[in-house]
Amino acid sequence: MPSSPALPGAAVVVRGLVKRYGDRAVVDGLSLEAAPGQVTAVLGPNGAGKTTTIECCEGLRAPDEGTVHVLGLDPRTDAAALRPRVGVMLQDGGLPTGVRAVEMLRHVAAMYARPRDVAELVERLGLASFARTTVRRLSGGQRQRLALAAAVVGRPEVVFLDEPSAGMDPQSRLAVWELVHELRADGVAIVLTTHLMDEAEQLADVVHVVDHGSVIASGTVPDLLASSGTPDGETSVRFEAPAGLPLDGLSSALGAAGAGTGPRWTVAEPRPGSYVVTGPADPAAVAALTAWLADRDALVSSLTVGRRTLEDVFLDLTGRHLR
């Protein structure tokens, strides 16, 4: 893959990565970079190649083609030098199940010369309530928090987090996000994979959208929101109402009401009962929308007027079909 010059001081540089399982290329010419003091999100649908890419960065898999450098080192050949400087949280946890949570954390801490204070980390991530519980009995969210603690206990310079918020309750997610912000402020390069849009929007400085094994869009969240889809002056209006409304006449009803002329409105019901209309939304258009709904005796349970979200961009880029 033609390569742009690396970010000065980039912590992770992946160039033209290819990884095949059998004759299927799961990662196919993927390139990305991650900088110190930034959160880099690798966003993509299931099966896009996110985890395989991260595992190549962690030295757990050998690339078939392309290069991977972490802190300027090769994760396969310089593994011994790299391991003390890199923290890893695997998607499937990788926690031994037969020990208590805090024993597991102490054990990982023992691998480092100057680990973080285990007690402080237990407090920080709210692990105290289950510190003496066997890992086998922890909930999904508790295991995730423990795995995150294990990833950062060695004071890493680069942290790879594979789906860090999977299975977490909202409180846990907030605690994790706070810790990620703190690591970023300390200059750590954080690379996380996620398929959660709000996580990428909340956390990421840079987002790489991955599909079918390669990066199809990169940039900051505002960049991505601005670059694709909605032309200037268009706004999405989302509303919740009874499912299955006949939307045929809505577009022209809105067009007649607003300043815009012609069929500039798009109308969709992406999920039953959840509608998105996009166009030159102004007060008159919103009034016309609610009047149209009132004519059909449909009560609106929520209505928001606002910009597109990362989810819209993502669905535009990767398509809406299930896989």
């Binding site: 010369a113 060695g154 400085d205």
Partner: peptide, 16 residues
């Protein structure tokens, strides 16, 4: 890039 340059905190990492 919108982020501020990272402070260069020393990372006293190292293996036991």
């Amino acid at each position: 890039m919108t982020s501020t340059p990272a402070p260069t905190t020393p990372h006293p990492s190292g293996a036991a």
